[in-house]
């Protein structure tokens, strides 16, 4: 083997980007299970709607679309902040990473507050799990998602502590990436939920 080939071979791994799953395999199995659960719920909504179109369309109009859109923006922004937190940790900037995570948590808290206002308004109008098929789906889907946001906030909090303690650094990003993947999943699911439940009719 001549030297040129040896050199090329030794350089090769640095050129081809290493194929790597960011985050723990276990959380990805978990994320797939979550996607499956939401997917089944979305399909159930869509096919039930096909049998009750007028009811669904009429009751959908009564939803707070602005609140839904605002919450989309909050979740997307939180996700963006989480990305910045991961990138900061990759640059060894733990303090910056912690600040980005805190900002993400503020957005998450904003989501929770908006949602609570939305729920209290809905409950005042007599919306309940038994008031109609649309309301059943609206409450079930958004509440199931809401619980995920709460869990995601807890995870962000744990990551915030980790980042402040300087626990994440290049080569040791598993904890941060694992939590980040979960938060992005919460966002991803909402990106279907919002148009499906609030807009499409």
């Amino acid at each position: 083997m001549n030297t040129a080939t040896t050199a090329a071979l030794s350089v090769a791994p640095a050129i081809t980007v290493e194929r790597r799953l960011a985050g723990d395999l276990a959380i990805w199995i978990f994320i797939l299970a979550e996607l499956l659960a939401f997917g089944v719920f979305f399909a159930a909504y869509a096919f039930t709607r096909a049998n009750h179109i007028e009811l669904f369309d009429a009751e959908q109009v009564a939803l707070h679309r602005d609140a839904g859109a605002l919450n989309t923006v909050l979740l997307l922004t939180a996700s963006y902040f989480v990305v910045r937190a991961v990138q900061a940790a990759e640059r060894l900037a733990s303090a910056a990473s912690a600040r980005w995570l805190l900002a993400a948590m503020v957005c998450g808290a904003g989501f929770v507050i908006v949602k609570l206002f939305e729920y209290s308004a809905a409950f005042e109008q007599g919306v309940s799990l038994s008031s109609s098929p649309f309301h059943m789906f609206y409450l079930s889907l958004t509440f199931f998602h809401f619980m995920h946001v709460i869990l995601g906030m807890v995870i962000l909090g744990a990551m915030w502590f980790g980042a402040r303690a300087g626990r994440y650094r290049p080569g040791d990003m598993n904890g941060l990436e694992t939590g980040a993947a979960y938060w992005h999943m919460v966002d991803l699911v909402w990106l279907i939920l919002f148009p499906l439940v609030y807009v499409i009719h």
Partner: peptide
Amino acid sequence: KGSVIILDFMALRRAP
């Protein structure tokens, strides 16, 4: 939007 989250934010672009 989902593709951006999946490929970039979740960094699956560089995953298997």
